[in-house]
């Protein structure tokens, strides 16, 4: 029972990270109509930025700022590729998938060649933090608390932005019908770029939270997370934001529970196994495609 509760807490923290990643991914999917497989790779890249910053400063504000700025810049810098792509192919999400896989490979290869000689990076222990709660086997680290609270706050803000603000309405209008949106005067390209920027901002925050939760990162982390993020998004129904919320959290919990009862090297395989089974049963996703 104690293991169960401990892993449930773990799962909620991990799930919050997945949810954040899926949200950023889905935002670009519905607004810009691309599958950005490399989005989690960018987040991992920002974790490297955090790690680099921490060598020079302990100022949390600066580290978060660096993470956000780097993620926004890189994500927006990728946008012209996808725009050129849509000029050539129309809005074909499969082609964008192929291209973003290449971008992911590129980022992974750069990380494994040029950053920390390809070795995994470790964040300072006080960055992950001691446990704030301690009941027998149940521990809750500062990093987990940050991930959970930060995750909830970011998700709330994101949904507020999307459903309660003028910009959010513009995003939703564009995602539903881009031609109609342009007819009523919405600048399509500018709005799409803005969605990349917001996804980048979300990614930068996620990078900090993820770094505090995991305490380490490696070049191959991007691939694992990217597969989970895309899989969660497909399982929820591509573009289904609320479905992504549920599925992301569920994956985090399921994965953590599996981790609590099975040897460590299998935990990713278990997560993928679950994804695979559901995907084979429901190839179109659980909650319906919304793009």
């Amino acid at each position: 029972m104690e293991i169960f509760v401990a892993q449930l807490l773990n799962g909620l923290s991990l799930g919050s990270i997945y949810v954040l990643l899926v949200l950023g991914f889905n935002l670009m999917l519905v607004v810009a109509k691309i599958i950005q497989f490399a989005y989690p790779h960018l987040v991992v890249l920002s974790m490297y930025v955090c790690w680099g910053m921490l060598k020079y400063t302990n100022n949390m504000f600066l580290v978060v700022l660096a993470s956000i700025v780097s993620c926004v810049i890189v994500n927006v810098a990728i946008e012209p590729i996808f725009r050129a792509l849509s000029k050539k192919h129309g809005l074909d999400i499969n082609v964008s998938f192929v291209v973003s896989i290449s971008i992911a490979l590129l980022i992974t290869d750069v990380m494994s060649h040029a950053l920390n000689y390809g070795f995994p990076i470790a964040f300072p222990t006080d960055w992950v933090g001691k446990s704030v709660l301690n009941f027998g086997l149940i521990t809750f680290s500062v990093g987990q608390a940050y991930a959970l609270i930060g995750g909830i706050a970011a998700v709330a803000l994101f949904f507020y932005l999307l459903y309660r603000t003028r910009q959010g309405r513009v995003f939703r209008a564009l995602s539903e019908n881009s031609v109609l949106a342009s007819i009523i005067g919405i600048p399509v390209v500018k709005t799409r770029i803005l969605s990349y920027a917001i996804a980048g901002l979300l990614g930068g925050v996620t990078a900090v939270l993820f770094a505090r939760l995991l305490g380490s990162a490696s070049p191959s982390l991007g691939d694992f997370v990217a597969m989970k993020v895309v899989a969660v998004s497909i399982l929820a129904g591509l573009g289904n934001l609320k479905g992504g919320l549920v599925c992301g959290l569920l994956l985090g919990i399921a994965e953590s529970l599996a981790m609590g009862y099975l040897p460590g090297s299998w935990s990713n395989a278990i997560a993928f196994m679950m994804i695979l089974i559901i995907m084979l049963i429901k190839p179109e996703g659980l909650f319906g495609i919304q793009i």
């Binding site: 309405r169 513009v170 939703r172 209008a173 919405i186």
Partner: peptide, 21 residues
């Protein structure tokens, strides 16, 4: 436009608001 096009997942109010972009 042709075919009474609206943003069908948004509310009436939101449709109007977004029209005033």
């Amino acid at each position: 436009p042709e075919g009474h096009l609206v943003f069908s997942t948004m509310t009436v109010l939101e449709n109007l608001q977004v029209g005033g972009y």
